[in-house]
Design a binder for these strands. Structure first.
Length: 256
DNA sequence: GCGACAG
DNA sequence: ATCTTGTCGC
């Protein structure tokens, strides 16, 4: 279906990532990030893309803004988009970021008062081959604080699904427990977090932009009703719902 | 050739 | 990402 990406394009993308990497701010920049109860934080965003089953190009781009700490819906935007870049592990941002930025731009235009103070992104931030995953990319280009939350482990910089890793997961006792994901260099690139008491499979949290890792992990835990933090979960549910409503069984009975 | 491969 | 309902268990 989609042509394999040319080698020189990947090299261009790498350069772009290495250039933008320099702009990532991996410390807390907001007052609320320093507060034990995050007082001052009122709006958290979540973004996601959902696809129709056999279609790699058309997707629903979703933005939700929830109140904090209640996690009630304040704003939502669903928009059908046509993707141009293929999915290549390590380059997810080149596929998705343009449409996430557009959604934020529509919000800035329509309801700037509802702009989220932090955005949860479905994917990694600094926990990435070149320390510049989707959450960093969106953070730097939007200027907003961003947190990356991946549902699956990307094996990067010496972190792998070893027995040691499995043992560390097994040692996570309750919601909020975590352990560091340490690169071969010694740098902690992210943390595996048990997001709730009832989910034994962790999520992988890393810094996107303008937030420290410890704050990102603490905030993620505080936004979890289920395994996936509520802003991302809502974005996922609502974009799927949009597709079900507007493209019901798009593949059934097409052959007569 | 084999494994890895965020979404 | 997507294919997929009910079911077993705490």
């Amino acid at each position: 279906m989609s042509a394999p990406p040319a080698e020189d394009l990947l090299e261009e993308w790498k350069s772009e990532q290495e250039r933008l990497r320099q702009q990532v701010v991996e410390v807390d920049t907001e007052d609320w990030q320093r507060k034990p109860d995050f007082s001052g934080l009122q709006r958290v965003g979540g973004m996601d893309l959902s696809f129709i089953k056999g279609d790699d190009f058309n997707a629903c781009a979703q933005l939700v803004v929830l109140s904090y700490p209640d996690l009630k819906l304040l704003y939502e935007d669903s928009q059908m988009v046509t993707l141009t870049a293929p999915y290549v592990a390590g380059f997810l941002a080149f596929r998705e970021t343009p449409f996430l930025l557009e959604a934020l731009q529509r919000l800035r235009m329509k309801q700037p008062n509802l702009l989220p103070q932090v955005v949860f992104v479905d994917g990694n931030g600094l926990f990435h081959y070149r320390e510049f995953g989707l959450a960093c990319h969106l953070g730097v280009l939007s200027g907003l604080p961003c947190v990356g939350v991946a549902k699956n482990l990307l094996q990067v910089q010496g972190v792998h699904k070893s027995e040691e890793h499995q043992a560390q997961i097994a040692a996570l006792q309750k919601g909020g427990d975590s352990f560091p994901l340490t690169a071969a260099s010694g740098k902690v690139l992210g943390k595996a977090l048990r997001s709730s008491d009832s989910s034994s499979k962790p999520v992988y949290v890393s810094v996107g932009h303008r937030i420290s890792l410890d704050t990102a992990v603490r905030l993620t835990h505080s936004c979890c009703r289920y395994r996936v933090p509520e802003p991302i979960r809502q974005a996922d549910c609502r974009s799927r719902e949009y597709l079900r409503k507007h493209f019901p069984a798009a593949d059934a009975c097409t052959k007569e």
